[in-house]
Each structure stands twice: as structure tokens, then as C-alpha cells.
């Protein structure tokens, strides 16, 4: 946003074909560069962020430290904008949780990404630091089954308590019912298939 280049970041391998190949990636925005210097285990993911918000992938073990550092160091990122999950079934760690922070002093934004996977995917909870993280984390738990260690009240939030499964996982069916039209000469149409008709260009 404010502190970074608009449009796409030129990450090798993800450069749009229409543009000539750009050799060096642009220098990181200030906030991101400081974060990368302070926490060497964080890195910029190889992925297109079309909104230009600077992004760092954070190892889950360091997440709480990174967020506390972001809160306390100038410019203080003092607004938790959103926490959201995504499911990429083909990946080794299929659950990606994205954190978005905002600094009211400079109006910079920074995005953190954490990956979870395995039998019982889990990430550290941010609720002790940010009360605002309470409901979003519950929603991710509800929708993806990613647990948050240290969350004071981790239970379903949108679905009924006795619901089975996690709806936003890709292996959860959309649950469409075929529509039967009155006196239809043709059998009911098949429901919309989930996922793209076109093969995804990434694995």
C-alpha cells in the first residue's frame, strides 16, 4: 500500500509474461526490511501479492515474538486488520493463515503468513496480545480445523456446535442439491463443480 510499489512485485517465476523479465527484485519496503533483519528466519514468499502489501512468511514458533515486536517497535502496528485462513491441499503444509496489521502512525501495512499442517494443524494464538484475534481465530478453527494454542475459548463460532467437518476445506463438498424443475423434460442438471474448470496453473 502506502510504503511499497503498487501492482505486482517482481518475484522470479511469477512475473507476468507481458512484461520483460526484471532481473533484481525491488528493495523491500522499510518495515519489511527491518522485520527481516530482526528475524532472519522470516522470508518473503515466492508468490504474487497483487495489492503490494509487504508480506513475510513467519515460522509458527516465532509468530508471537514477531507480532509483539511489531506492536512495540516504531512504527507501532497497532491495529489488527484481519486474520484469515486458506487451504491449499496440494501443499505439504496445506493451511495458510494470513495476518494483516496496520500502523496508525504511518498508515503502513504488513502481512504475515503462517503455515500449518499435519494430523492436527495448530498455530500459536494471538489472543493474549490482541483481543481482536479472538473471533477470527475461532472462525478459522471452525472453518478449517486449525487449532490455536493458548486461545481462551476455542470452539465453533459460525457453524452449530455439533457440526461435523470444516466447511471451507477443499475436501468438504459444497453441498449443493440438484434443482428439480417441475415437469422438467430433462433430468436435473449436475451441480456446479467446485474448483476451476480450467486447470490451475499452479500445483
Amino acid at each position: 500500500m502506502a510504503e511499497s510499489t503498487p501492482g505486482t512485485q517482481s518475484v522470479p517465476g511469477q512475473t507476468p509474461q507481458s512484461e520483460p523479465a526484471v532481473a533484481p527484485p525491488p528493495e523491500h519496503p522499510e518495515a519489511l526490511q527491518r522485520l527481516l533483519d530482526r528475524f532472519p528466519d522470516c522470508f518473503v514468499p515466492d508468490w504474487r501479492f497483487a495489492d503490494g502489501i509487504s508480506t513475510a512468511a513467519v515460522p509458527p514458533a516465532q509468530l508471537v515474538d514477531v507480532v509483539r515486536w511489531l506492536m512495540e517497535t516504531e512504527p507501532r502496528f497497532d491495529l489488527l486488520v484481519d486474520i484469515l485462513g486458506a487451504h491449499w491441499p496440494q501443499r505439504e503444509l496445506p493451511f495458510e493463515v494470513t495476518y494483516l496489521f496496520h500502523s496508525l502512525a504511518t498508515h503502513w501495512r504488513i502481512r504475515l503468513k503462517c503455515l500449518a499442517g499435519g494430523e492436527a494443524p495448530a498455530l500459536p494464538s494471538l489472543v493474549p496480545l490482541w483481543p481482536a484475534a479472538n473471533w477470527p481465530e475461532r472462525e478459522i478453527y471452525d472453518m478449517y480445523g486449525v487449532a490455536f494454542d493458548g486461545h481462551p475459548d476455542l470452539r465453533r463460532i459460525l457453524m452449530p456446535n455439533d457440526w461435523e467437518g470444516h466447511p471451507l476445506r477443499k475436501d468438504f463438498p459444497l453441498g449443493e442439491e440438484p434443482v428439480e424443475f417441475y415437469r422438467s423434460p430433462t433430468p436435473p442438471a449436475a451441480p456446479f463443480p467446485a474448483g476451476g474448470d480450467i486447470e490451475p496453473s499452479i500445483a
Partner: peptide, 30 residues
């Protein structure tokens, strides 16, 4: 193209954002 984007605006209730993930197919991944 594959990638992700966060579009925001000020709705009557505040910052309304939509986060779209693309995997390069014709349907949003998320």
C-alpha cells in the same frame, strides 16, 4: 494470474475488505 489481492473500501460500517486468492484457474481459490 496466480496470486492474491486485498481490496478495501470504507463501507458504512468501516473497513470492508475482500481478500481474493487466485490459483490461476477461472474460479477464485478462496
Amino acid at each position: 494470474q496466480p496470486g492474491e489481492a486485498y481490496g478495501i473500501l470504507e463501507s458504512p460500517r468501516g473497513e470492508q475488505g475482500t481478500y481474493v486468492f487466485s490459483d490461476g484457474s477461472n474460479k477464485p481459490h478462496r
